[in-house]
Amino acid sequence: MKARGTLAAALASAGILLAGWQAGTQAGGVSTLASGTTSSGTTGSGPTAAGATGASGTGSSGTGASGTGSSGTGASGTGSSGSASTAAGTYKGSAVQTRFGAVQVQITVASGKITDVTALQLTDDDRKSVQISNRAAPLLRSEVLSAQSADVQTISGATVTSNAYLTSLQAAIDAANL
């Protein structure tokens, strides 16, 4: 949930970024960029995004795009007077801790428009990649964690009545350990 909130917030803040650029173009001067989340540091060549350091979205409850995005602290931008058409490159947000591990968002900007938003997966404590979303999805039976009866120490199933227990796998395991 946090991860999606972060992603949504990044989208929102990116929108604000664009609005900032457009405002800057119209005013012909330095624009102030309001950024809600995550963008800090650049890997691309876009000079106008240098000021987009935002508060990272580490709220204790999953806030949606509007909440986090609009209330961001937004460092004032060093936005040059460059028109939107010069903004290009990819921008990585800062890593945000969620209960699934750290997550990070990257946007790709071309001709002043966001062309892609990618959720970069970082690592969890086990140094394995984690899924950002905990949402359920269809899985083939060959895709779930598999098990042979011999490998398990206990069995979970829909509530087993005393009668059904007699013929259950759990009964077999218990019998072996009695």
Binding site: L145, S146, A147, S149, V152, Q153, S156, L169
Partner: peptide, 19 residues
């Protein structure tokens, strides 16, 4: 870790997964 088998409701003599 302990490993828990999960009964396959389609065939209760089998496991559908483990956790």
């Amino acid at each position: 870790s302990w490993k828990a088998g999960i009964v396959d409701p389609v065939d209760r003599s089998r496991l559908v997964s483990a956790y």
